[in-house]
């Protein structure tokens, strides 16, 4: 038997829905920020789309945000619960984020310009019992 085969595979209890969501004691979003022009990206970039430089650093994205735009989605692909409030929010440090507005008892209560705060929630469990953690924004 190889050494690898004898090693116990550690099954995580939780996984973030996307890598730019950091979970744990202090859940938050993290962006790759260009060290030259401070443009932020949630995915990895070969070079900065704004200035072309190649150095990035990971930064925390602010939790507080304002609702810049939204749509109340009533028609979606099969299996996706509707209605939900899809949103573009602008965090207080100037980063645009796409997520749902969560926690409204009536989706029509979403209002342009409303204050929001980052939150996380569980969105499913796989066959290993691993919990998928997603994020959204709730009315502040």
């Amino acid at each position: 038997m190889t050494e690898e085969a004898t090693e116990a595979v550690e099954i995580p209890t939780q996984l973030p829905i996307v890598e730019y969501l950091r979970i744990g004691d202090d859940p938050h979003l993290a962006a790759n920020e260009c060290t030259n022009c401070q443009a932020r990206f949630f995915d990895r970039r070969n070079a900065c789309a704004k200035c072309g430089r190649e150095e990035f650093t990971s930064v925390r994205v602010a939790d507080d945000a304002t609702l810049r735009s939204f749509s109340i989605v009533y028609r979606a692909a099969p299996g996706i619960p509707v209605p939900y409030v899809s949103a573009i929010v602008l965090t207080d440090d100037g980063t645009s984020v796409r997520a749902n507005v969560v926690g409204l008892d009536d989706p029509m209560k979403a209002e342009l310009g409303m204050r929001l705060r980052f939150t996380t929630f569980s969105c499913g469990t796989d066959d290993n019992g691993t919990d998928c953690v997603a994020f959204g924004y709730a009315a502040a």
Partner: peptide, 30 residues
């Protein structure tokens, strides 16, 4: 906007390291 698939085992994939389809969870893609 892709149909929701039930993942057997979550595994990060793609440039955002998504473990499942995000349409409807992280905003809309429709």
């Amino acid at each position: 906007g892709g149909a929701k698939a039930e993942e057997k085992v979550f595994e990060a994939a793609g440039r955002y390291g998504a473990v499942t389809g995000v349409d409807g969870i992280l905003g809309t893609e429709t």
